[in-house]
Amino acid sequence: MRLERIHHAAIIASDYAVSKAFYTEVLGLRVVAENYRAERDSFKLDLALPDGTQVELFSFPDPPRRVSGPEACGLRHLALGVGDVAAALAELRGRGVRTEEVRVDEFTGKRFGFFFDPDDLPLELYEL
Rank of each mutant, 00 (worst) to 15 (best):
T24F: 03
A17I: 07
P122S: 05
A10C: 03
G94I: 05
R111I: 03
H77A: 07
V97S: 13
A13N: 00
V26N: 04
H77W: 10
P122A: 01
G81D: 14
C73Q: 12
A33P: 03
D120W: 13
E71C: 04
R65C: 00
A88K: 13
D46A: 05
E34W: 10
E71F: 12
S14T: 06
E25C: 06
C73V: 14
A79Y: 09
L123N: 03
L75S: 06
K20T: 10
L125F: 11
P122E: 04
G96L: 04
A38Q: 06
L27V: 05
P50R: 02
L57Y: 07
D41K: 14
A90E: 14
V67Q: 14
F116P: 02
V32Q: 09
R93D: 07
L89A: 10
K110Y: 15
P70M: 08
V26K: 10
R111W: 07
S68Q: 14
E100Q: 13
V31C: 04
S42D: 08
I6E: 03
I6D: 00
R30C: 11
Y16P: 00
R2V: 10
V102D: 12
L121G: 01
V97G: 14
S42C: 12
E127C: 08
F107T: 06
D15T: 00
M1I: 10
K44I: 02
E39D: 12
N35S: 13
D15S: 04
E91G: 15
L89R: 14
A38Y: 11
V55E: 00
H77Y: 15
R66H: 00
D120M: 05
H77V: 04
F60T: 07
L92Q: 09
R66W: 00
E25A: 10
A79V: 10
T108H: 05
F58I: 01
T53C: 01
F58N: 03
D84P: 12
F60N: 02
D84M: 12
T99L: 11
L49D: 09
L92T: 09
E25I: 08
V104S: 08
H77R: 11
V82P: 08
L45D: 08
V67T: 12
E4L: 15
L89G: 11
K44H: 03
C73A: 15
P70G: 13
L75N: 06
P63S: 06
S59I: 01
L121A: 05
G109Y: 11
A9Q: 01
S42R: 12
L3F: 11
E100M: 04
V67N: 10
S59F: 08
K20P: 04
F116M: 05
S14K: 06
E39M: 11
V85Q: 07
S68H: 12
A10F: 03
S42M: 13
D15G: 02
R30S: 15
A88V: 03
G96I: 06
D117Q: 00
V97Y: 14
L3W: 07
A79W: 07
V31R: 01
G96V: 07
R66A: 06
R65H: 02
P64Q: 02
G96N: 07
N35R: 14
Y23V: 03
A33G: 08
